[in-house]
Amino acid sequence: MVTQIALVTGGSRGLGRNSALALAKKGIDVIVTYHSKREEAEAVVQQIEAGGRKAAALQLDAGLISSFDGFVQELTGVLRGKWDRGTIDYLVNNAGFGIGASFETTTEEQFDSLMNVHFKGVFFLTQKLLPHLEDNGGIVNLSTGLTRFASNGYSAYAAMKGAIEVLTKYLAKELGDRGIRVNAVAPGAIATDFGGGVLKSNQTVRDQISSVIALGRVGEADDIGGVVASLCSPEMGWVNAQRIEASGGMNL
């Protein structure tokens, strides 16, 4: 049986790291990308390899579209050198960051930085990788619960993720003849470093948000990685073009 390979962008920490580890537990080799946290990415690689899977880490600025050709060239070189092939089976578009700013104070610079990473970058990186994505593989795009329920300060961020959810359906439609499934995972409030890590450090905020979640607690990265990995498994082979919210039942 041919080993499957997943590429996880932003896989050095947070949800990307957890997704990479969950994929490895399912027997899938993993390539993670990082923006600047090389040591953290290498630690993920070491943890995956300690568990018996192959892994690699590559630098990628997910918002710098002009760098994508060079990245794809580097990726294919690593694939041939380490796996003796030039393709991946799964792409997890996870890389991202948050900016909390009201609609009226959001600057064009903030808007463009969010757009480049969360939508334009995803659009064109996926496009560049299509020739290197195996038929009958899959794409998982990370969205957010904020596309369903609004929260002050995230109008631009949530709008980009709303675009990702629409793109997910179009990709599923256009790539269906290749057997490529495309789905979106929409996490709720998760205690990671995202947005300054307030959900990790501020108990008052944690308590407040926990009060509007049906399961009564803030989410952790471990609550999301398995959802992403499951979409890269045969058991989910008939799930396509879906937005899967993993929020514990937030703001019902």
Score class of each variant (00 low, 15 high):
Val166Trp: 08
Ser230Glu: 04
Asn94Arg: 04
Leu199Trp: 07
Thr126Trp: 06
Phe124Ile: 06
Val30Arg: 06
Leu171Thr: 02
Gly219Gln: 04
Ala43Lys: 11
Gly27Thr: 05
Pro131Cys: 10
Glu174His: 10
Phe194Ala: 05
Val45Asp: 00
Phe149Ile: 01
Thr106Met: 10
Ala214Pro: 10
Phe194Gln: 09
Glu40His: 12
Lys37Val: 00
Val30Lys: 07
Tyr170Lys: 14
Gly11Ile: 05
Ser233Glu: 04
Phe103Ala: 15
Arg181Ala: 10
Ile139Glu: 08
Asp69Glu: 13
Ser67Met: 01
His132Arg: 14
Glu108Thr: 03
Phe71Ser: 07
Gln46Thr: 00
Ser151Leu: 14
His118Trp: 07
Ser151Ala: 14
Asp29Pro: 10
Val166His: 12
Asn94Tyr: 03
Pro187Ser: 04
Lys120Asp: 06
Ala246Gln: 11
Gly249Arg: 07
Leu130Trp: 09
Ile28Tyr: 10
Leu252Ser: 08
Ala241Lys: 14
Asp84Phe: 03
Gln59Glu: 13
Thr3Met: 12
Val122Arg: 05
Ala186Pro: 13
Ala95Pro: 01
Leu58Phe: 00
Val239Asn: 13
Asn251Met: 13
Asp135Leu: 01
Asp29Arg: 05
Ala186Lys: 05
Gln4Arg: 14
Leu167Glu: 14
Ser211Asn: 10
Ala241Asn: 15
Asn116Phe: 04
Ile164Asp: 11
Phe123Asp: 01
Arg38His: 11
Gln46Ser: 10
Gly96Phe: 03
Thr147Lys: 15
Ala22Asp: 12
Ser210Arg: 09
Thr76Leu: 02
Phe119Ala: 00
Ile190Tyr: 13
Ile99Tyr: 04
Val44Tyr: 01
Asn136Trp: 12
Gly96Glu: 06
Arg85Thr: 15
Asn141Ala: 12
Lys26His: 10
Val32Trp: 00
Gln127Ser: 12
Arg178Ile: 04
Tyr154His: 11
Lys173Ile: 09
Thr106Cys: 12
Lys82Leu: 13
Leu167Ala: 15
Leu15Ala: 10
Thr33His: 00
Ile244Tyr: 11
Asp222Arg: 09
Thr204His: 14
Gly121Lys: 07
Ala184Ile: 02
Ser12Leu: 03
Leu133Arg: 11
Met250Glu: 11
Leu58His: 03
Asp207Tyr: 03
Lys200Ile: 03
Ile190Leu: 10
Glu220Asp: 11
Leu114Phe: 02
Phe149Met: 02
Gly216Tyr: 04
Arg53Cys: 02
Leu175Lys: 08
Ser247Thr: 09
Ala56Ile: 01
Arg13Asn: 07
Gly188Arg: 12
Leu91Ile: 02
Ala163Cys: 08
Tyr34Ser: 03
Gly219Leu: 04
Leu133Ala: 09
Asp177Gln: 03
Glu220Tyr: 05
Arg80Ala: 13
Gly27Glu: 11
Asn141Cys: 14
Leu167Gly: 13
Asp177Tyr: 02
Ala241Ser: 15
Asp223Leu: 03
Lys26Asn: 13
Leu125Glu: 05
Thr87Ser: 13
Ile213Ala: 06
Ala101Ser: 15
Ile244Glu: 09
Leu60Tyr: 05
Val2Asp: 01
Ser247Cys: 06
Gln208Thr: 15
Ala56Glu: 08
Gln47Asp: 04
Met250Asn: 11
Val205Tyr: 12
Gln110Val: 05
Tyr170Thr: 14
Val227Cys: 01
Gln46Ala: 14
Thr168Ala: 04
Ile180Thr: 09
Ala184Gln: 06
Leu129Pro: 11
Met236His: 11
Val212Glu: 04
Thr204Tyr: 12
Ser36Ala: 08
